[in-house]
Design a protein around this nucleic acid. Structure first.
Lengths: 146, 146
DNA sequence: AATTAGCGTTAGTGTGACTAACGATAGGAG
DNA sequence: CTCCTATCGTTAGTCACACTAACGCTAATT
């Protein structure tokens, strides 16, 4: 008879994943907060740097942030003068979100912060193991979401 | 010059970890809900099966659930007759939480559900890769929390 | 006997994921 | 050209989990 429900808790893969992410997220959130930012801010700034000016719908699509949540995020970023929000003259349903110079600076800063946190969090892993982990997670995520 | 802030978003390890956990957690939560349970319920039931009767403080310690949150969880479990909560006669500050027969049955059920979800979520990985992933996550988690 | 420490509990915060519904605008079908 | 449908931004919720602060009771320490 197997040790049902006992040792299982400590080896449950979905739980290990959750716990690792929780720990990582906590540090990420803490450090981003010191730069007056949070994960969603970074995702938006990074996506804008990649795409150039974009609508909220596009940003939602690429970042995975729900468009309902994005509203407040963009508002916060405009309050910090990191992006501008203006109606798209070509399609008046849309807002055009654009990165400002301050937004670019902030993005670079956040990039550094996140690199440092990555280093801290994955310290127990070798460079090779970190790559392995990334590869495994990418494999998982490449599978179509249900 | 590096592709700062562009492709980075898609390869950021802390983000991959977060996203994988989010996807996994969603399925876990969904499936547990079908059995009128959630992650915290499972953690408590599994820990009780391992430890035998325990105080809330002990359960908090072992599951990582804050003792303030545990209060409601134990209440929910008693409402479902899966555990009993009684003052510890040996130390009247404590409650003794004990698994009931229904609690044991529920635990077995949840074990099956979680095994199925694990299979689904980690389907893109081979058996060996799954073990690798567990090993890497365990390595990370074994490092003392900050 | 007085202080300290542990325990359960209440109340509240913040982040992120996710749904429902609505007004405005654009695009396509008849 | 008009009706229908789809898209877009927005508001207002819900839920699960992580985490803090404070309080009253009880046990252990000194």
């Amino acid at each position: 008879m197997e040790n049902i429900g006992a040792e299982r808790l400590r080896t449950l893969r979905t739980r290990l994943l959750s716990m690792a992410a929780t720990r990582s997220d906590r540090r990420v959130t803490e450090e981003l907060a010191r730069a007056d930012a949070r994960k969603w801010h970074y995702a938006v700034l990074a996506t804008l740097a990649e795409l150039g000016p974009a609508s909220q719908a596009q940003l939602s699509e690429r970042t995975g942030i729900y468009r309902s949540d994005l509203v407040a995020v963009i508002t916060e970023l405009t309050e910090r003068d990191q992006v501008t929000r203006a109606p798209d003259p070509a399609d008046r349903r849309r807002n055009l979100i654009e990165l400002t110079a301050a937004g670019r600076r902030q993005l670079r800063r956040l990039d550094q912060i996140l690199a440092a946190v990555d280093d801290e969090i994955f310290a127990p892993l070798s460079a090779e193991q970190r790559e392995q982990l990334s590869a495994l997670l990418t494999l998982m995520l490449d599978a179509p979401a249900p």
